[in-house]
Amino acid sequence: MVFLFSILAVALQLILMPRLAILGIAPDLMLGWVLAFAIWHSEQKKEWFIFLPVLLFDLLAGRPFGVITISLWLVFFFTQWLTSILFKKSDFPAVVSLVLIGTVFYEICRFPLTNLFAAWRLGEPIELSAFYFYAALPLAFFYNTVLSLFFIWVLNKINLFNDGSLFKFK
């Protein structure tokens, strides 16, 4: 089941998400899902739910392979840790702040890793430019906030793990 959902998510990301791109920046389902899963309060979270879709996506579309998986895994762990120590009251501003921190942290992980792989001629480096700061990053933050809120809402609605400790908005 997780595998099927992962494949569906990968297909969605590769076919339909590019249609929603603004200024060439498309929503990132994987990052939105990872952030939502990290912020969502539940004791029975299974790491497979984020690891498998991210790995499948990376195998299929990642270039160079490994950058997305490792960056998103670090983002998941870091955001989950922040959620548990800083934002125990998971209300709307806290979720938005966590998404912002998570998005920035993802870029911080992705940038040196991509450039490191590029040095080995395994991919193309990320070129930092003004466009990246005034357009790409704010748009990525906007998309991730919308996606994360949507995924948290879905997780609450379907009560995926049925453990009674679901995240509630105030």
């Binding site: 590769l14 076919i15 998400m17 590019p18 920046i25 579309a61 990642g62 270039r63």
Partner: peptide, 13 residues
Amino acid sequence: VAGYNPVLGQYFL
């Protein structure tokens, strides 16, 4: 063209 991924650069499968 099997897919397009503008998130990580302008690639297509």
